[in-house]
């Protein structure tokens, strides 16, 4: 018998949906981070090229 003040719970389906969304956010974050690394590298190369370095 759950207590009256027990925390709200998720069903199995809700939990699966929640984890799916969190995985999607994590993948997006790693893609953005890798994209930034590549972008900063390319910016550095472009700056060096355009300044004659």
């Amino acid at each position: 018998m759950p207590a009256e003040n027990a925390p709200p719970t998720m069903t199995k389906e809700e939990e699966a949906a929640f984890l799916r969304r969190r995985r999607g956010r994590n993948i997006a974050l790693i893609v953005v981070l890798i994209g930034l690394v590549v972008l900063f590298y390319m910016i550095t190369m472009a700056k060096l090229t355009s300044s004659g370095g």
């Binding site: 027990a6 925390p7 709200p8 719970t9 998720m10 069903t11 199995k12 809700e14 939990e15 699966a16 929640f18 984890l19 969304r21 969190r22 999607g24 956010r25 997006a28």
Partner: peptide
């Protein structure tokens, strides 16, 4: 999930998508 139980997450959980 494996237990098929319910999880105490609903209120503070981040439900956002990309």
């Amino acid at each position: 999930i494996e237990r098929g139980a319910t999880a105490p997450l609903a209120v503070s959980a981040d439900w956002s998508e990309l």
